[in-house]
Structures are given as C-alpha cells and as structure tokens.
Simulated assay, not measured.
Amino acid sequence: MQGKTNPITPQGYAALKARYDHLLGKERPEIVEIVSWAAGNGDRSENGDYLYGRKRMREIDRELGHLARRMKAAKVLSPADQPDKSRVFFGASVELADEDDTRKTVTLVGDDEQDASAGRIGWSSPLARALKGASVGDLRVVKLPSGDKEWEVMAIDYA
C-alpha cells in the first residue's frame, strides 16, 4: 500500500477513526492496567493475566499501526461531489442486472469499508474495476473464478 492513496467515503473514514480512538483511548489503557497489576503479582511465567495481557497489547498495537497507516493514506471522497453523475465512479450505487434479469445493487466504496453482505464492494474488487466509467445501459463482463459473468448497468445513483 506504500505510495498509493486509499479512497474512502467520509463515513468510512469516521469508522476507521472511531476504531482507532476506541483502541487507543479505552482498550489499550485497560490492558496496560491489567498487565501492570499482573506483573506485580510475582512470577510472570505462569501468570495468565500477564501473558494474555501482553499478547492482547501486541495485537492492539499492531492494529493501531495498521489503522494509522490506512488513515494517513486515506483520501476522503464524498460521492455527492462527483462531477459526472451519469457514469460509475467512486461512491456510486449501481443497480445491475445479469443475463437472467436477476438484479442487485452495489455501492463502490473504499477497500477498508467494504461489506459484500451489505452491498458495499471495495474500489479495487473485480466487479468495481469492471464497472468504472460505465453508463446506464452498458454491458460489463466480470472475470470471476467460476467464469465470466456479464452485468448490465440499469441505474446509477450518488445519493
């Protein structure tokens, strides 16, 4: 991820920041307190609170570092500010139909905020890459492990 920007919606950035603040302001101080208390109990080699606490502190520090790097590389883009709303770009909600006229709606969001079960797909996913720049009525082929699948763009929204 070095040298690359990380496009993200304002809501996605707020979620990253909230997670960072929660880890730094609440979880980490609680673990530090537990580790300090456990260290004062003597033998650390068989002290479960101490061993677990140190392990959890390393996990939190690793996640804090990851979140800090992602936020530093983030480029907050508001979908409402998109100048060309007739084509698919970052932040677009796109209604798609396949060959069987099965319809689904997906929203192109940053990779850190993707959630396929909620219809939010990452900006660098195969479907998002295939849809970039498409207009209503365009047919796009997505290369999937199970084979190619063709989707037609039915509607584009930047609400």
Rank of each mutant, 00 (worst) to 15 (best):
M1V: 12
G3V: 11
K4C: 06
K4Q: 13
N6Q: 11
T9N: 05
Q11D: 15
G12E: 09
G12F: 08
Y13T: 09
A14I: 07
A14C: 01
A15P: 00
A15Y: 02
L16N: 03
L16F: 10
K17W: 01
R19S: 08
L24Q: 15
G25W: 09
G25S: 10
G25V: 11
K26V: 12
E27L: 15
E30R: 12
I31D: 03
V35Q: 06
V35L: 02
W37D: 14
A38M: 09
N41V: 00
G42V: 03
G42N: 03
E46S: 12
N47V: 01
G48R: 13
Y50D: 00
G53N: 03
G53S: 04
R54P: 00
R54Q: 15
K55M: 12
K55V: 04
R56C: 01
M57L: 15
R58T: 11
R58G: 11
E59C: 01
D61H: 09
D61W: 06
D61Y: 06
E63G: 06
E63C: 08
L64A: 08
H66Y: 12
H66C: 02
A68D: 11
R70K: 13
M71W: 07
A74Q: 06
K75R: 13
L77Y: 01
D81Y: 05
P83N: 06
K85L: 04
R87H: 12
F90G: 02
S93A: 15
D98V: 08
E99A: 12
D100T: 11
D101C: 00
T105W: 02
V106C: 02
L108P: 04
V109Q: 03
V109D: 05
D115T: 01
A116D: 13
S117V: 07
S117I: 04
S117D: 13
S117P: 02
I121G: 03
W123K: 01
W123S: 07
S125D: 00
A128C: 08
R129L: 14
R129W: 01
L131C: 04
K132R: 13
G133I: 04
G133Q: 09
S135Q: 10
S135G: 10
V136R: 13
D138R: 06
V141N: 09
L144C: 06
L144P: 00
L144M: 14
P145T: 07
P145L: 02
G147W: 13
D148G: 06
E150K: 15
W151N: 01
V153M: 03
V153E: 04
M154E: 11
M154P: 00
A155S: 13
I156S: 02
D157C: 03
Y158Q: 02
Y158C: 00
